[in-house]
Design a protein around this nucleic acid. Structure first.
Length: 920
RNA sequence: GGGUCGUUAGCUCAGUUGGUUAGAGCGCCACGUUGACAUCGUGGAGGUCACAAGUUCGAGUCUUGUACGACCCA
């Protein structure tokens, strides 16, 4: 009967052993390695991994991010694309430098003790030893990235790309050196871009300070500021020219408190008369807006806070910082100045003030606006291209609402400060010749792709710019620098650029995503991907972002150890609505990850059943089965498989724009519904294949003969389809099970097996099986109501005639096996006490249950059903009686509603008759 | 201050152009170890779709407003 269980699976799924077995096998067989040559005759499908920082440790955000990418890559790989997932790391300038500086601090040193060269060597050592560990951790999640192409933003190759990009932008006049107020982190000792200086809502104070008129101490102007220490650098007070309160003051002079420095009152439209006192102190060296005012009025720009955040006379500030304040930290100086102002009677009032203060995104220090020389990229021409590809549909962003954010940012784009005053990073490819610069009028920097050793003009010594580039200046080239750019002949670049999908979190839409689009459009004239998929953030149950400092994180490696990689992936994908945050409870891993583990267990048990009952001998391919040999259940499950394939395809795809590389309006919002994909696949394998088909097929498998072969074939085929559909999501367990299938010749690995396709023609409808399902459910309901023990078989009589009777007749054995009943089909309902249920198709189910029937219970059930149906029918009749409805609603709908009303009416009559019979 | 999004079952969320009796997972209740599966099975309870008005024959779905919450930007 059953096949000897020579190949039977262990009763418990050993995920650890399976993961350890299959990842290396895939890897050794080169499954993950894409080929530029093959891409010539297959569609390439390319994703670049958002490179984690070299110093990063894997957290749930990476788990979510890489799972999404791996699902897409594995899906497309099976679908026949040349799938390439490029992994790598980011050297992360400031972040990495901070880590090493902390190490040095623990040893009692600063980077300045070491000096630049040794410090950089030290960081390199550190990166070589512990860097990139995160990539190995990604492997334990099953990530099928092409490790042969692992990249690093600071590798020699990518450094070439960085210099090339800088020089090209310089040649087009888009890179320039500017003297202006930028965001400065006094702790990191470097400038930051606008995006790197993050706003934090802060409870601060608003200080109102009185400035007396220089020639008439009886008159004054009061200004308000959140940073009173900056008054030392004030060079003017600005009022609006139309503000009658102040027009008499314009042109006169005020005395700064404490220092008695004389400053003018000026008129400038920047001042809003309705805000505060309508008069604004102007500190051009320490506020970006004030800087603009200062430039307009050609004011001096005294610098009174140095690079370390210490108050002192740095530049053009002679006589502005009293000795008692010099050398103080800016916040200490603030308190001291408030004391001095109070003593002088210049402090009018202090109010609590809620405002946003910029903080360094790497160390959270309050950012100091500071006047300095920096390198900038003029972004506007690049932004135009990035806007154009979105508008033309060559690029889409999902969820679509982010497109507005993207557009808004690009339309108001500001120049990008790309120079950093740190040591870890790409040195700016600019050299200076001090001799020429000092003698000639020429002060043009020497910008070069290659190192400059001598001054091209005088042949003398040159020195390289001390600054390094913003780490994002290398990241923004990632989609093509990793493929060999600027080498136009690179096979990878030709084969795999532009790529397809970028998967990341919305936080770095500006930092990275939009800049990659700009770089791709600018340097290669094509958007680097056609789809940006912005997934949500992993949060805890209080909706707080998971973070090290809050201690609310979950280590994905713990989850892999306890539940398996597939369980983790399942949880990530199944809960992943488009762009929706993922809530996980760090204190209850069981709650979050048990569903994934349970799903794997279920799958495993289906596999065990299959192997023990279907055996390992050859099964027929589904195509050779004669249509008439198929049972209703066979036809049904094959239908369901087709539907599952269609649902999965619709949830995931289309993989790329189907027409000329641009999304149509219809297509644009489609696809990447990972949770829908998961649900469609789960429903098929669990609710359809396991719950119904498997149960129905048991007796057929137990009896030798032609029908057993049909059942074996259909079962094997359906399970094969299920495994293929599930593989991108839960690759390990599906591969392990698939290897055991007694299937017709197949490729050696599920990872490279073909993604399933719907049958072209449906030979037989599976609808008849719905009768079985409904009947079984009705019998089960009766059994549950009367508490019939599972081992007890009940009599079940189906009252039907005509074709329905014939259809039911063919399925009585199946119904009986699943519902544990002796089923018969008759024309006339048997008399006597019984539980009677009217099925949707009008068939009456009679379960006699001799001696057990409770009349009250039966009446109660019928009463309930009648009441419910009556209510619905009344509502429906009301709708049909409404002439406006019948006149205006689509005729098909009206017809359908009429038919439904008839059906309900007849059912109601049947139920009422049953109730009456009970009462007599 | 400007903008975007959300509010559907106890919890986390689906619900695609308005049209059956609004769904899933988890949780809950009852019964159960039947030769794949108790990490499971079977049956069940549970929702005035935040609130108010409007458009419509018809609104969870469209419009406006209100409340609460979240995020982004300045």
């Amino acid at each position: 009967m059953t096949t000897p269980d020579t190949n039977s699976l262990p009763s418990n799924y050993d995920f650890a052993a399976t993961e350890a077995e299959w990842y290396p096998r895939w890897s050794e067989r080169g499954v993950f390695t894409a080929s530029a040559a093959r891409a010539a005759h297959r569609e390439p499908f390319v994703i670049v991994l958002p490179p984690p920082n070299v110093t990063a440790v894997l957290h749930m955000g990476h788990g979510l991010n890489s799972t999404v990418q791996d699902v897409l890559i594995r899906w497309r790989r099976m679908a026949g694309d040349e799938a390439l997932w490029v992994p790598g790391t980011d050297h992360a300038g400031i972040a990495t430098q901070n880590v090493v500086e902390k190490q040095l601090a623990a040893e009692g040193h600063t980077r300045f003790d070491l000096g630049r060269e040794p410090f950089v060597e030290r960081v390199e050592q550190f990166v070589a030893q512990t860097g990139g560990e995160i990539l190995h951790q990604l492997k334990s999640l099953g990530s099928s990235a092409d490790w042969t192409r692992t990249a690093y933003t600071f590798s020699p190759g990518l450094s070439v790309a960085v210099r090339e990009a800088f020089v090209r932008l310089w040649e087009r006049g888009l890179v320039y050196k500017g003297h202006r107020v930028i965001h400065w982190c006094p702790r990191c000792g470097t400038s930051l871009s606008d995006e790197e200086a993050e706003f934090t809502e802060t409870a601060g104070k608003l200080y109102h300070i009185r400035y007396l008129l220089a020639d008439d101490a009886s008159q004054s102007i009061t200004v308000a500021t959140t940073r009173p220490e900056t008054m030392l650098g004030d060079v003017a007070v600005a009022v609006n020219a139309d503000d009658a309160r102040y027009t008499p003051f314009v042109g006169r002079e005020l005395l700064l408190p404490i220092t008695a420095v004389r400053i003018p009152v000026i008129a400038d439209s920047y001042t809003d008369p309705t805000f505060g006192s309508g008069a604004v102190k102007i500190t051009p060296a320490h506020d970006a807006n004030d800087f603009d005012v200062g430039k307009r009025h050609a004011l001096t720009m005294p610098v009174i806070i140095d690079a370390d955040g210490i108050v002192r006379e740095v530049e053009l500030a002679a006589g502005r910082v009293p000795p008692s304040l010099a050398g103080l930290d800016r916040f200490v100086a603030r308190d001291r100045i408030v004391e001095l102002l109070t003593a002088e009677g210049a402090l009018v009032k202090v109010e609590p003030h809620q405002h946003n203060v910029r903080h360094c995104y790497r160390c959270d220090t309050v950012v100091e606006p500071r006047l300095s020389d920096q390198w900038f990229v003029h972004m506007q021409p690049l932004a135009e291209k990035a806007l154009a590809v979105l508008r033309s549909g060559q690029l889409r962003i999902l969820p679509e609402r982010w497109e507005a954010v993207y557009v808004n940012w690009l339309e108001g784009i500001r120049d990008w400060n790309i120079s950093r005053q740190i040591w870890w990073g790409h040195r700016i490819p600019v050299w200076y010749c001090d001799a020429c610069d000092s003698t000639a009028e020429r002060s043009t920097p020497i910008v070069s792709r290659d190192p400059v050793l001598f001054c091209p003009t005088c042949g003398g010594a040159v020195r390289q710019d001390e600054d390094v580039l913003d780490t994002w200046f290398s990241s923004w080239l990632w989609p093509f620098s990793t493929l060999g750019w600027p080498d136009r002949n690179s096979a990878d670049l030709k084969a795999f650029y532009p790529g397809d999908v970028l998967v990341t979190a919305p936080e770095i839409l500006f930092f990275w995503v939009s800049r990659m689009v700009m770089a791709g459009c600018w340097f290669l004239d094509a958007t680097p991907f056609h789809t940006v998929y912005l997934h949500g953030t992993v949060r805890d149950m209080q909706h707080r972002k998971m973070s090290k400092s809050l201690g609310n994180g979950i280590d994905p490696l713990d989850v892999v150890r306890l539940y398996g990689a597939d369980a983790l992936r399942w949880t990530m994908v199944a809960g992943l609505g488009l762009g929706v945050d993922v809530m996980l409870d760090p204190d209850d891993l069981e709650k979050s990850f048990a569903p994934g583990r349970n799903f794997c267990t279920k799958l495993w048990n289906i596999g065990r059943f299959l192997l023990s009952r279907v055996g390992t001998e050859h099964v027929d391919p589904i195509g050779v089965l004669a249509p008439e040999a198929l049972t209703a259940a066979d036809a049904w499950i094959l239908d369901r498989l087709d539907q599952a394939i269609a649902d999965c395809d619709a949830a995931l795809g289309p993989p790329r724009p189907s027409f000329r590389g641009a999304w149509t309006e219809v297509e644009k919002g489609r696809g990447l519904r990972l949770s829908e994909y998961a649900e469609a696949a789960r429903r098929f394998v669990w609710n359809e294949l396991a719950d119904w088909y498997l149960e129905s097929v048991k007796p057929r498998l137990a009896t030798e003969g032609a029908d057993r072969e049909v059942a074996r074939a259909v079962l094997a085929h359906a399970f094969d389809g299920a495994l293929r559909l599930l593989h991108p999501m839960v690759p390990f367990i599906t591969e392990a099970l698939w290897q055991q299938l007694p299937q017709t010749p197949h490729p050696a690995l599920l990872a490279t097996a073909a993604w399933p396709k719907e049958r072209i023609t449906r030979v037989l409808s599976g609808d008849a099986f719905e009768y079985t399902r409904e009947t079984v459910q009705a019998i089960r309901k009766v059994r549950a109501e009367y508490n019939v023990q599972p081992g007890t078989w009940v009599d079940a009589v189906l009252v039907a005639s005509g074709t329905i009777a014939t259809v039911l007749e063919a399925q009585i054995e199946t119904i009986g096996v699943i519902a544990r009943g002796r089923v018969t089909v008759v024309q006339v309902a048997p008399a006597g006490l019984a539980s009677r249920i009217v099925l949707a198709n009008g068939v009456e189910l009679v379960v006699p249950l001799a001696g057990m029937i409770d009349v009250a219970k039966e009446r109660q059930r019928l009463d309930g059903e009648i009441a419910q149906l009556d209510k619905q029918l009344t509502a429906l009749d009301g709708r049909l009686a409404n002439e406006k409805f019948t006149a205006k609603a689509p005729p098909e709908l009206v017809d359908a509603e009429r038919a439904k009303a008839e059906e309900w009416r007849s059912r109601l009559a049947q139920l009422t008759a049953k109730l009456k019979a009970l009462g007599e």
